[in-house]
């Protein structure tokens, strides 16, 4: 069972957000970047578990420039066997999906894993796009995946509950919390990661239809109004008359 895991680089949750070039580009200066948590904690680890159960190989793929190698090495340290980097700074999620789909067309994989979304743009776009490019089945927001005869039984999160689906490889699956337990790379993994193959592949041409015209910051909150704990009638009045939410 050979798996491909799509990994992304995102700003750390605590990163200060600012913009440059007339508010048209994210200011990367001084920002620490991490492997997108949904990709790392759930998608990658479940792919490694699957290899431990059934054999095969785990390949990670990233669309990015050489500055992304550090997060790719982290994925190798956690337990991926090899890595592919499509050598371009991704223009958009549609670009990433096209590059990954083209790579999959020329290389066989049973399951394509990715996190349910990145924590910066929260679009949840790439998995569905890859699946459509390849006419594959797609299960999003998977919180559990078990072998089921020749196929799999996957549990996915839906609004206020869950849905259980039976399907067979090949398919695309996006990982939510619960799909696997986070693994911390150990020293042996980190040493081995340095010797694992990281293949750099040139991108295919991409014609985008969407671009960021501008970024802006939300209006500042007015500050907190503290209410006397003995006077909850006052809080109710504020919520009704001032905030108008009740």
């Amino acid at each position: 069972m050979n798996s491909l895991v799509c990994i992304s680089k995102t700003p750390d949750t605590t990163a200060k957000i600012s913009f440059v070039d007339g508010n048209t580009a994210f200011n990367e200066d001084g920002v620490s970047f991490i492997l997108n948590p949904y990709d790392e904690w759930y998608a990658l680890v479940r792919a490694i578990e699957l290899k431990e159960e059934k054999g095969g190989k785990v390949t990670v793929i990233n669309v990015g420039d050489p500055s992304n190698d550090i997060i790719i090495r982290k994925a190798l340290a956690i337990g991926a066997d090899e890595a592919v980097r499509i050598n371009k700074k991704a223009e958009s999620s549609a670009d990433v999906a096209l590059q990954v789909a083209e790579y999959v067309k020329n290389n066989n994989f049973d399951i394509i894993f990715l996190g349910k979304e990145t924590i910066d743009y929260n679009g949840a776009e790439v998995g569905a796009m890859i699946a459509e490019h390849l006419d594959l089945d797609y299960v999003s927001f998977a919180s559990k995946m078990e072998s089921n005869g020749d196929g799999f039984k996957v549990t996915r999160d839906i609004e206020g509950g869950i849905e259980e689906i039976a399907l067979s490889a090949p398919f695309v699956i996006s990982a939510a919390k619960g799909l696997a337990e986070q693994r911390i790379p150990n020293m042996k993994g980190i040493m081995m990661a340095k010797r694992k193959p990281l293949n750099v592949v040139e991108p295919v041409g991409f014609n985008g239809h969407v671009n960021v015209a501008s970024f802006s910051l939300p209006s500042e909150k007015g500050g907190v109004t503290m209410v006397d704990p003995e006077n909850m009638e006052e809080l109710v009045r504020l919520l009704k008359e001032e905030a108008k939410v009740l």
Binding site: N122, Y138, F141
Partner: peptide, 23 residues
């Protein structure tokens, strides 16, 4: 932008060759 919409919007944007803005 729900569990259903997120599963479909990306697919439909590829199928129609259309730009997508999610959320």
């Amino acid at each position: 932008h729900s569990s259903t919409g997120k599963s479909l919007a990306g697919r439909v944007s590829v199928a129609l060759g259309a730009g997508l803005v999610s959320g």
